[in-house]
Amino acid sequence: MPHHKITATEIDFREEFDALRTQVNDLLQSLKSKSEKTADTLVENIESKAEHYQDQAEQKLHDVYEAGNAGLHDVSEHVRKNPVASMLIAFGVGYALFKVLGQGK
């Protein structure tokens, strides 16, 4: 059985290979850590923006509700002050809808 001597070159190669493997593992761990931090930051940003847009939507809905209430108040005030004119307008709108829908042919 032949006896194989390990040369200094083979030892140097193995040491360099082990060092390279350690560096690659360290690099992969670093990348994994950075990607996890980046993902966490991205999720936080998305959640923050979603909350901001939800707040804006709620404010717009509140504004529309307030405008609707103000409009109803104005209409009811107008009807209260001018009941005959309001009744004639309502009758005219109803008659026009009746004609448009084809029921008055």
Rank of each mutant, 00 (worst) to 15 (best):
T22F: 13
A50I: 06
L27M: 07
G92S: 11
E36W: 04
L97K: 07
R80Y: 08
V93T: 07
L61G: 12
L20C: 06
I89W: 08
F13C: 05
L28V: 08
Q29T: 09
V79E: 00
Y95P: 03
L31D: 04
D12A: 15
R80M: 06
K99H: 08
K37W: 07
K5W: 11
G102I: 00
E15P: 03
Q103H: 12
T38Q: 09
E15C: 05
S76T: 09
S48C: 05
T22H: 14
E44R: 08
S76R: 14
K5M: 12
A39H: 05
G104H: 12
Q56M: 08
H73E: 12
A67S: 02
S48T: 06
E36A: 06
A19L: 02
K99P: 04
M87Y: 12
K5V: 13
P2Y: 08
H62V: 14
E16P: 03
H4K: 14
K5P: 15
H3A: 14
I89Y: 08
H62G: 15
L28R: 12
L88V: 10
P83F: 01
L97G: 13
I11V: 02
D74W: 06
K32C: 08
D26M: 05
I89G: 06
K60D: 14
F17M: 10
E44T: 09
A85W: 00
T7N: 01
A90R: 01
D74R: 12
F91C: 11
A90W: 00
A85P: 00
V79I: 03
R21G: 04
K34H: 07
E44C: 03
A70K: 04
L97H: 06
A8D: 15
V79R: 01
D12S: 13
R80T: 05
S35G: 07
S76G: 07
G92E: 11
A85R: 03
H78K: 13
E10L: 00
D26Q: 11
A96N: 04
V100L: 08
S30T: 05
M1A: 15
S30A: 07
K37V: 14
Q23C: 08
A8H: 09
D55H: 14
T9A: 15
K37A: 15
E66S: 13
I6N: 04
A19T: 03
G94I: 06
E58W: 02
L97F: 05
H62M: 13
Q56V: 15
Y95K: 10
V43D: 08
H4C: 06
K5C: 12
Q29E: 13
D63A: 01
D12Y: 10
V100R: 04
S35W: 10
S76E: 09
G92L: 12
S33V: 05
L42V: 12
E36N: 05
I6V: 03
D40Q: 10
T9M: 13
R21P: 03
F17D: 11
N25A: 10
E36I: 13
K37L: 15
P2Q: 11
G102Y: 00
N45V: 11
A57Q: 01
E15K: 12
F13T: 07
S48L: 12
K34N: 08
Q23K: 14
I89C: 08
